[in-house]
Design a protein around this nucleic acid. Structure first.
Lengths: 334, 334
DNA sequence: TCCACGGATGTTTACGTTAACAATTTCCGC
DNA sequence: GCGGAAATTGTTAACGTAAACATCCGTGGA
């Protein structure tokens, strides 16, 4: 900057004024400065700016597993909306969600150049580490039950599940089997809980749960077990990938979808409309989740801490071709 | 820091020494300082550190579309390896890849607190904007043909394609149809080119190309057209999602896979082993791509600019159940 | 006893920027 | 032509940190 000032024959303050587009610089001077900037390839030093302003214009995102379906879309939405507000985002992935690693991420985040943090992570781990969250850092949590301590943005898991299970009940199924996500996952537990509650409300029997790990392969294994049960005519999988595995298992076991068994997924990932058959599933609005996260966090940064509480993003059931009215109890056409 | 020094009754320099774990501080003093740090909740200001050191310990990643299959895994690998070296990563997503937007991302990146940039983007856009890349910033490009100007890390698209097409030829297919990605995509063009070259080398006819846009739906449309051609017995799709669409189209058209038609994909995404049938596909090592990116960039940051050139990450063909020996020309079993 | 030495700690300075204030120039109306 | 207001430009200081150098102290050897 001093070099630019010297070359342009002005003071560094004038250079600063030009760099920030402030008024009060006569046109000829401004052009001289701009020319000098170009010649020297001047770029403002954001570290010095941050130091001066006490703000970084950066949001940190701590997450476990970027590749997992929804996360990348949420992060993308966060990044897009943050960019629109002049904020960059810094990613801290936690590869294995041990407490130590999460704690380490917090520590690193604490030393990092961020004005606030968005946490996309299994909240079970959050409990023990809550103490170590740097006090001055603003936080928004995604998909968790930390609603009593932090502002939370979450998909309305319960309502989405209810829509899915109700849809199957309304089609005449006598009960709905559930392929759940891992017990350690908060979202999985919410979906399993809502599935059970919806069945109980309807006065229907609650079959034993099948546990998967979100992967298509685990869905396939669960699907093979369910396919062996002739009374099983409706399956609600906790995500689309496991539903894909279920579809394959049913196909391999000679049970037709939706003629013999109806299947519903959760997420509405891009491919689910191309499954065999196209999957009926609960649509999650990841982009909206990201949008609300950014807004909540920026509100905190600008206006001070926000009250804890949960902001639920609604879901919609997308009906495709994997669900149908129930037919006679396992009566082959032939 | 000054507060900590006051509370501990030492100078700020001593606090700095303790904060950085330097030697030459007697144990009793160190503990006093640490106690003061805890009491005041002291966290070092990274902006000031960056200013002092002239480095940010941050890598910028510019990309178009985080949700696209491979990108999120590449980014995850980049983030993980960068973290291992003490670098954070800052994400700049470009939602619509117009030149203006890319240019804007560069400008923002230029003002951003990054020591280097990894570009994951269609290179066609890079051409025009190359001029505006800030000269002092180190760059590594992923999946592009900028090998004459920047260091590039790329999956070995050509070899992967050759393996896929050869596999089908070796199974006795008389030719291989291709469902390509969008013409604007560099990776799509590389795969299409290698597909054509491999067929020509083998002296086989080159059928007309089917264009998709990477989505399963576009693969479905292309698949319906190919299914109508009874001479088509082998299809190479430029990615797994389009292959999924092709599988559905073939199923709907009553053509069995792999009995009537063999299908090969590209990417080996997590779900492809759960397709109907499990998909034979070219495995891409996204994690390795990310790893090499980080290494190349850090080498530049530490040792000065690297020579342009392309670093190819090998691929392997994963054979599953969607490919089989060719049977008689469209002779139904019945 | 005194000096040299080394370890522990303090002081000064600079990193690049911008707010606040000061100084200078320009312009207008009388 | 002059006073004064407004516009333009310059000067100073501060943000938090750490390198470089300075100072202080105790220790050990001559």
């Amino acid at each position: 900057m001093a070099d630019v000032a010297r070359l342009a024959g002005v003071s560094s303050q004038t250079v600063s004024r030009v760099a920030n587009g402030q008024t009060g610089v006569v046109e000829s001077t401004r052009e001289q400065v701009l020319a000098a900037m170009r010649e020297l390839g001047y770029r403002p030093n954001s570290a010095a700016r941050s130091l001066r302003y006490g703000r970084f214009n950066t949001i940190g995102v701590i997450l476990f597993g970027l590749s997992s379906t929804g996360n990348s879309r949420t992060v993308e939405a966060i990044a897009t909306h943050a960019a629109a507000e002049g904020y960059a985002i810094t990613l801290i992935p936690v590869d294995v969600p041990t407490q130590d690693n999460v704690l380490g991420a917090f520590t690193r985040m604490g030393e990092l150049a961020v004005d606030g943090v968005i946490l996309i992570i299994e909240v079970h781990l959050l409990d023990a580490t809550a103490v170590s969250l740097p006090p001055g850092v603003h936080v928004v949590v995604v998909d968790s039950d930390a609603g009593d301590r932090y502002p939370v943005v979450d998909t309305d898991q319960a309502d989405g599940t209810r829509q899915a299970v109700r849809h199957l009940i309304d089609l005449g199924h006598r009960t709905v089997h559930h392929v759940a996500g891992p017990a350690a996952s908060f979202a999985a537990e919410r979906r399993a809980g809502a599935w059970r509650a919806t069945l109980e409300e309807a006065g229907l029997p609650v079959p034993e749960i099948e546990r998967g790990d979100w992967s298509a392969d685990s869905g396939h294994r669960a699907g093979l077990r369910l396919a062996a049960d002739p009374s099983c005519t409706a399956i609600f999988a906790a995500n689309d990938q496991m539903a894909l595995g279920v579809l394959r298992a049913l196909h391999e076991s000679g049970r037709r979808v939706p003629a013999d068994v109806s299947v519903v997924g959760f997420d509405d990932i891009a491919d689910s409309s191309a499954y065999l058959p196209p999957l009926t599933t609960v649509h999650q609005d990841f982009a909206e989740v990201g949008r609300r996260c950014v807004r909540l966090l920026l509100d905190q940064i600008h206006d001070g801490p926000a009250a804890p509480g949960t902001d639920l993003v609604p879901t919609t059931l997308t009906i495709r071709q994997s669900t149908d009215r129930v037919r006679g109890p396992a009566t082959p056409d032939a």
